[in-house]
């Protein structure tokens, strides 16, 4: 049994210790937000927040998470980033979007007034294939109180 805290709730899951957090979130806890994209840490669609840091859940074994706080998009409760993404209609297929929201949330928690350069650099780990980049950037600016579309 492995213990972990997700969105403030303690869970005990029966998973092999090498299981990446992603599969525990999706298969054991029934959470949809973190997505399998590459399993290689190259695309960011599995991004969650662990102890305030954006983390690639496809790479992090669940066994190292004891005593740490995991947050997923299900636990954000409609934060400013989620609202801004809705306002900007910042999704096409949307498969990457939960990962984008989590990485942007982590950025704004650490740096509430990011520059355009900060936002682009911070998000550059996360891939979007539909080409929704301009709306995602606008949403993060909006969430940071910098207005939306430039």
């Amino acid at each position: 049994m492995i213990r972990l805290t997700v969105n403030g709730q303690q869970h005990e899951v029966d998973a092999e210790p090498d299981t990446p957090l992603l599969y525990v979130l999706r298969d054991d806890l029934g959470l949809n937000g973190a997505k399998f994209g590459c399993g290689l840490g190259q695309c960011g669609s599995c991004t969650v927040i662990v102890d305030g840091q954006p983390v690639l859940s496809c790479l992090m074994p669940v066994s190292v998470l004891s005593g740490r706080q995991v947050r997923t998009i299900e636990g954000l409760g409609g934060n400013a980033v989620q609202h801004a993404f809705a306002e900007e209609q910042a999704a096409q297929c949307g498969y990457c979007i939960a990962g984008m929201v989590m990485r942007a949330t982590a950025l704004l928690e650490q740096n509430p007034h990011p520059s355009e350069h900060d936002i682009r650099e911070h998000l550059s780990l996360n891939l979007c294939r539909c080409g929704t980049h301009m709306r995602i950037l606008a949403a993060v600016r909006r969430a940071a109180g910098q207005g939306g579309k430039s």
Binding site: L31, T72, I73, G78, Q82, F85, A91, A98, V101
Partner: peptide, 8 residues
Amino acid sequence: DIPAKLTG
């Protein structure tokens, strides 16, 4: 379709 995609 966007709300579900933004909330998990």
